[in-house]
Write a protein that binds this DNA or RNA. Structure first.
Lengths: 194, 194
DNA sequence: CATTGTAGGCTAACAGCGTTAGCAATGTCA
DNA sequence: TGACATTGCTAACGCTGTTAGCCTACAATG
């Protein structure tokens, strides 16, 4: 058996730096699609390769390991979140909460990937995490304690909803209202800007 | 090669019903220990078997599959939580929060196992989930919306802490204080007892 | 034009995972 | 003593991520 037509596309590498980018980006894109459509179990190296018409070991010519793919998806997720959360309105807290929940429910698997495990902060582009977090901190006038409490509440609501931990007849909107109300009407006695 | 000394322990089965209990409980106990000490990746069927001096396939004489083991651990976790949370004090909310956090930090892997995925409610002993949840609902005088908001906050704080998502210098205690303060001083405008 | 180097495919294979099939030895009971 | 259930075993399957080593096509250089 001979390799008949491998490497058809000759794309004339444009002058400049590393040209690995194209293929690598394709791989990441496929991984993202598989994650969204088939969940974490659907993201296997063989499945990714198959979608690209190649075999799994070939992926390692472009990517060090699977973890690197996940890091790429996480970094991308932060960028998406930053865009979704950035705003300059009143009712900042309510707006943030709504957008946070919406984003998470629209990207459940990516959200889990981003929050399940410790962040690979060393491998993440600089500032990417900060930028996604800034809108929330601003909404609380720089009080990080309040911002963290609000974040924890939102994160808890979202993960419990995603994991279907509330009873089927639970009024999730009502719980959101109660929580947001409580935190935004909070008397800022112990404001911490650290 | 012959099987030399298999099945040494002759324990004289006490009269009564199914005697699978003993071995099955041992298996669950080993699984729990492995989960606590080595995390979820340490809980493999081969590792469990090895601890018991047998081979992995033999486990299936006592347990249907790995999921059943996990369900047993989850049920046990709920029982532990119920005992840890049940109380009859004042400052119920603060006390609950402290105990909730303490329990989660003491059993991080079990906590994750219990909250990560949808509960196998069909396979769980009746009432076990309810009982663990009751102390919290009582602390809020039966308002399930407030209880859920508080639960989400606590769950969010705990999972973010376990996943090391707060910056290393973050004042986690302060965030807890802010959140608890907000929710317990909440004006109960929209009380829902459903 | 011939040579060399590299990029990016490939197959074969390994260790580890959960799990199944089928066999063997032991202990219990009639 | 014979039958049967219990509980162990080995071998194996299909899946996972990953490595080693090979081959082919193209680009650049002499």
């Amino acid at each position: 058996m001979t390799y008949s037509t491998q490497q058809d596309e000759t794309v004339a590498p444009e002058a400049g730096a590393s040209e690995d980018k194209g293929r690598r980006d394709e791989i990441v894109a496929v991984a993202r699609r598989l994650l969204e459509h088939h969940g974490p179990d659907g993201v296997t190296m063989r499945a990714i390769a198959s979608e690209l018409g190649i075999r799994a070991p070939s992926l390692y010519k472009h990517v060090a390991d699977k973890r690197e793919l996940e890091v790429a998806l996480i970094a991308d997720g932060f960028r998406q979140q930053a865009e979704a959360f950035e705003q300059s309105e009143e009712h900042a807290i309510e707006t943030f909460a709504r957008r946070y929940r919406t984003w998470a429910l629209e990207h459940p698997h990516l959200y889990r990937l981003m929050t399940d495990r410790p962040l690979p902060r060393n491998e993440l582009p600089d500032g990417v995490e900060e930028r996604a977090a800034r809108p929330l901190i601003q909404a609380f006038g720089g009080s990080v304690d309040h911002a963290r409490a609000a974040w924890a509440f939102a994160h808890g609501m979202v993960t419990l909803e995603l994991a279907q931990r509330f009873p089927p007849d639970a009024d999730i909107d009502a719980a959101w209202r109660v929580g947001i109300d409580a935190i935004s009407n909070q008397s800022a006695t112990t404001t911490n800007t650290r």
